[in-house]
Write a protein that binds this DNA or RNA. Structure first.
Lengths: 274, 274
DNA sequence: CTTGTTATTAACATTATATTAAAAAGAGAG
DNA sequence: CTCTCTTTTTAATATAATGTTAATAACAAG
């Protein structure tokens, strides 16, 4: 029919299949620093996620993940980068694609497929650069065989939802989830949060991504707290130290002033030395 | 501006952002049975992937993964299911989303974003149901720190390509790959193959997905060969048996006739008993 | 009956992980 | 200045997981 690819392309009709819209949603995760209420000995750390309050329809006045439309002349992964820049004023942030959601009715406006990303940030690097309608929520994440219970709390508002894992017959596809209760979080964003936390929990043990959430210098106690928050359980000191021993290096700095033996400050071994 | 969501939706202009097309690509993986050349003692198993030869532009006469356009009224994950049915005449196959590729120029026709899926099948269940332009290729997959070398071979044609891993600074994002050499495989499908094999290698150790590639009854030797093919290395018998001990159950069937001690046939423990 | 072959498991060696508990070093109270 | 409190840090031990060697089992073919 056509004798060359050029000829084919010239005659190509892009409207053969009806086109659709794409958006991106970004799960921005960090660990609460909680320095305000740091009495000594009580510095409970939390996982935290950045949400924005919608001021337009649909889902007006509900919370949602930062996101937006993919532009026609923009690479897929450039959209989350752009939005991250707008939202936190940071670039060069760890970003990883999570999952693409594409149910026909997931958006009331029209057919929209959305690719979600997970970003890990060191909260101490931002500060006052947050957008006005954005807020960090502490995450409590409880998972058992059948359900995941998530509670989000920003100090003023509490969002709770429950996610049921659908029958995992022969496998453990961690993304086949169903939202059971939710009335404050827009779209299918509860699924994105569950998928992201799940992914992070999993990856923390075989990659070094956790250091994207850490400042340059940290004590092993602080690092252990972050591991504990992400894994949702206490770790024993010697075991933890053995695990991360070859990932970090001791510096000659120490952190004193805590009413106890001062702790050595460590840094990530493979970090680019500035 | 609008006093209700309905009112907003009624007035909504879906053409605010230029829409794009979406396709899906399916990485159908299996393990070669190789029963034809089964002399005794030499039954080398291979990983295999199903490719189809394109008979239209673009990439006419090149091989590619089975795939197609997402229809406007079709859930995202229903598209790969539909195509899988067309291609292999099987349904109820293990299917898992891999990654969504969305570079602006990844398709010469127009802006197309593609979500790839991985399907695992038991090759003994198909047989003569293959589409005429489709063919199984044995996969050889060699991975080191910097590169992945892949060779695909269907007995008549050999496809080779090399993939470079981009600088993994703070992390190990297994998807940030670059295709270095490739002239017979269309689109960014080398990336999909690398991502899928990588995912399978990883997941085999903490899930039971491998049983999706196995027939109902199998010997531990056969299962071990599949593990070895997927992991790309030899395993020691006792170690392997300990690992899978609680995943399989011995049946009273045996497989004899191999010129040696007959082996017990096992089955997957959590399989639905028919 | 002997040999070749793979299946299967026992027994031991090595390594990794879990657990307990002790020593180290500063802050603050008196 | 000394005692107590606290957290850091590591030593030492116990337990579990994994790696390795090699013995035994069972059948086919000559």
């Amino acid at each position: 029919m056509y004798s060359s690819e050029e000829e084919f392309l010239k005659a190509y009709d892009p409207n053969q299949f009806e086109r659709l819209s794409m958006t991106t949603d970004i799960l921005i995760l960090s660990v609460s620093s909680e320095e305000e209420s740091n009495y000594r000995k009580l510095s409970k750390k939390y996982f935290s996620v950045l949400l924005v309050k919608r001021n337009t329809y649909p889902f007006k006045d509900k919370w949602c993940l930062p996101g937006g439309f993919i532009r026609i002349d923009e690479n897929l992964e450039d959209a989350p980068k752009r939005i991250l820049k707008d939202e936190t004023n940071l670039h060069n942030i760890y970003l990883e694609q999570l999952y693409t959601y594409g149910d026909v009715n997931r958006d009331p406006r029209m057919r929209i497929v959305s690719t979600s990303y997970m970003a890990l940030v060191d909260k101490t690097k931002l500060k006052d650069t947050l957008a006005p309608n954005a807020s960090w929520f502490n995450v409590t994440y409880l998972e058992d065989e059948k359900y995941i219970d998530v509670t989000l709390d920003n100090g003023e508002e509490v969002i709770k939802f429950k996610i049921g894992k659908t029958l995992k017959e022969l496998t453990t596809d961690r993304y086949k989830f169903t939202v059971l209760k939710n009335d404050k979080l827009a779209f299918d964003h509860p699924l994105v949060i569950a998928a992201g936390v799940s992914r992070l929990r999993n990856k923390i043990s075989y990659t070094d991504i956790v250091f994207n959430m850490m400042p340059e210098y940290f004590t092993l106690g602080e690092l252990q707290q972050v591991y504990e928050v992400i894994l949702g359980k206490k770790l024993l000191d010697p075991a933890f130290r053995r695990i991360i021993a070859n990932k970090v290096e001791k510096t000659d700095k120490v952190q004193s002033g805590g009413g106890h033996r001062p702790s050595a400050l460590f840094r990530y071994k493979n970090a680019k030395k500035n």
